[in-house]
């Protein structure tokens, strides 16, 4: 399929083109950490979580052709969450085999898995965070280091405006402007990403 460069399709449609490295990169950058974190939050070990990430990405690569974007149907993220959930269930059962846990233990873990239909289990939150991290990577190279530092120290590390202003040789007002501008840029980058996916 060919996509006119001017009309950016939604990310999922772009993923159908296996040669669209750019879109795949974008997809992996955003979603890889999401899947990993959700897996960790559900109690998987680090290596198992990585393994799960790979499985999900493979499943997406296989299934992406069949995804039909349709307003009445599930969103891409929901779809991805379901794949993650499925793979997670499989991961749990197969790793139980290796550990040779008894019957009741398996049952306990399985019952602890949230039902896929009722909540997304932090998936949305992790997704939002991941998009913010991605946006930060876009924005940071385009602002002065001092601006970024002013933003980082006040907004991320929660330092007081006064001390940051003093360290950076800026005025309080300048620090407020710096952090607000960076945030506004982050918001714009996030919005742009959301539009395209």
């Amino acid at each position: 399929m060919t996509i006119a460069p001017k009309t950016r399709n939604s990310l999922i449609l772009r993923l159908r083109n296996r040669d669209d490295v750019q879109s795949w990169r974008e997809f992996v950058t955003i979603y890889q950490p999401v899947i990993y974190r959700v897996a960790k939050a559900r109690g998987l070990q680090d290596a198992d979580a990585h393994e799960l990430v790979q499985r999900v990405l493979v499943a997406v690569a296989r299934a992406v052709d069949r995804f039909q974007p349709d307003k009445n149907r599930a969103k891409f993220r929901t779809w991805l969450y379901r794949i993650t959930h499925n793979e997670f269930c499989k991961e749990i059962t197969s790793s139980q085999r290796h550990r040779g846990t008894g019957d009741s233990g398996v049952r306990a873990i399985l019952e602890s898995i949230p039902d896929a239909s009722d909540s997304d289990d932090g998936f949305s939150t992790e997704y939002r965070r991941s998009v913010f991290r991605w946006a930060a990577d876009q924005v940071r190279p385009n602002v002065k280091p001092s601006t970024w530092i002013a933003f980082w120290r006040t907004s991320v590390e929660g330092e007081s405006t006064d001390s940051v202003a003093k360290d950076l040789g800026l005025t309080n007002g300048a620090v407020y402007i710096a952090r607000s501008r960076v945030m506004a840029r982050l918001q714009r980058a996030v919005a742009k990403f959301e539009e395209q996916s």
């Binding site: 890889q32 991941s130 913010f132 991290r133």
Partner: peptide, 12 residues
């Protein structure tokens, strides 16, 4: 969200 996202460094 921005604070939590950025503060939390990640294996990825």
């Amino acid at each position: 969200v921005a604070r939590d996202a950025l503060r939390d460094s990640d294996v990825y």
